[in-house]
Design a protein around this nucleic acid. Structure first.
Lengths: 210, 210
DNA sequence: CAAAAAATCACCCTTTAGGGGGTATTTTTT
DNA sequence: AAAAAATACCCCCTAAAGGGTGATTTTTTG
């Protein structure tokens, strides 16, 4: 899909100043048009389909239905729409939730309008935008713990455990005996101070060992 | 950390044209200096510590040790260094592996030098850069399957299962009885055509249901 | 409002994957 | 040469998982 000058933007944001500020700037400094703005998702949901937006700029901290919960509903209402999230908070969890729920991008409110406009262009051209700060968070969240107490093989086995594979499958996959897998898991449990697979997986995810 | 004019850059890239091209452009059109370039990781590993780089631009397709495998070693050698990956391929797996192994950013070789320089600035200032295409891939990889056969509750339970929690823990967490959890898992298994927890988790991860 | 879908809870019965303990050889690293 | 990692076996035991069946309540939706 190519970015058409007539691409339609809808803003859902409770803060009037921000809402109107962005709307004004987008309308006057970009080829896109803000066809509607709403102060809440609840106010938007019955009308937004008629707006036929290509891009929705969606705040997270909304009165009533929040942005995270609104996301899947908007996606259902308008499957083709690109959604750019707006927020003041940048906790990892929130961001990942937003992305996982179908946001095309993510920005904070101090994002300059120019950046936002560029982001609109980017999503319309098929590349999802991501602010450096957010990218950083995502990256960090994907990084493994550097100083793991586990050996390479143990990490490998723990990894396979988290995928739901049982000892037999793990053994087959690594071309070793089931008993060897067992020995490794015992050592893993000792090192992680746990004594069940479930706990091990939890610790592994928690400490980013896998 | 702030971007200092004297920030030191090392390039590891086998293609001489690209290597020298980037080096020349960075040296002449940015405040950063390329203090060394190497055609392979193997050629770099014994000398790179002395280069004291702040940023390493690392190609993935290298002769000998490839960039992905070089990543953790470089991180071990120079824990503070920022690494920007360079590649022609953009398969999801490769990218995620790179990010997971500690890359600060990710670019393709047709990235204009200006962008690369900006990326260097970004990483030095604490924001990891990420090209729109890559961001898109990451985002897509994080997105859940929209048309899951599972209900909300079932998805929720499947999610908890993947974290290694047992029925008891899941029940407690959702304020329901163990028997209810069991019923849900049965339904999940039926819908996913599996009959063990392990299989369910594998299908879930495979089809991005969680 | 009525029907359908989703979520809740219960009892029976069977199996096995997982976990504890101990020992030992080979390979790789340092 | 010593240490660390990876490999492999044996015995024992049970908690958790899985199959079957049935039923009530809540929520969603046409």
């Amino acid at each position: 899909m190519y970015s058409q000058p007539e691409s339609r933007v809808v803003i859902i944001e409770d803060d009037q100043t921000i809402r109107e500020g962005y709307a004004y700037l987008i309308n006057h400094t970009s080829p896109y048009q803000v066809v509607a703005t709403y102060p809440s998702f609840d106010a938007a949901k019955h009308k937004i389909s008629k707006d036929q937006p290509d891009v929705i700029i969606l705040d997270i901290q909304l009165p009533g239905t929040n942005g995270i919960d609104a996301l899947p509903q908007l996606k259902r209402l308008l499957p083709q729409v690109y959604i750019i999230m707006l927020t003041v908070y940048e906790t990892e969890k929130t961001i990942l939730d937003a992305l996982a729920n179908g946001a095309s991008g993510y920005f904070t409110k101090n994002t300059p309008t120019a950046k936002l406009i560029e982001a609109i262009k980017d999503v319309l051209n098929g590349g999802g935008p991501m602010s450096p700060d957010v990218a950083k968070t995502v990256i960090l969240s994907l990084q493994k713990n550097q100083d793991s107490p586990l050996t390479k093989r143990e990490t490998q086995i723990l990894e396979l455990m988290t995928t739901g594979k049982d000892r037999g499958q793990i053994a087959k996959e690594l071309f070793i005996e089931v008993e060897t897998v067992k020995t490794h898991t015992k050592n893993i449990y000792t090192k992680l101070n746990v004594n069940t697979k479930a706990e091990a997986i939890q610790v592994a995810k928690d400490k980013r060992l896998v």
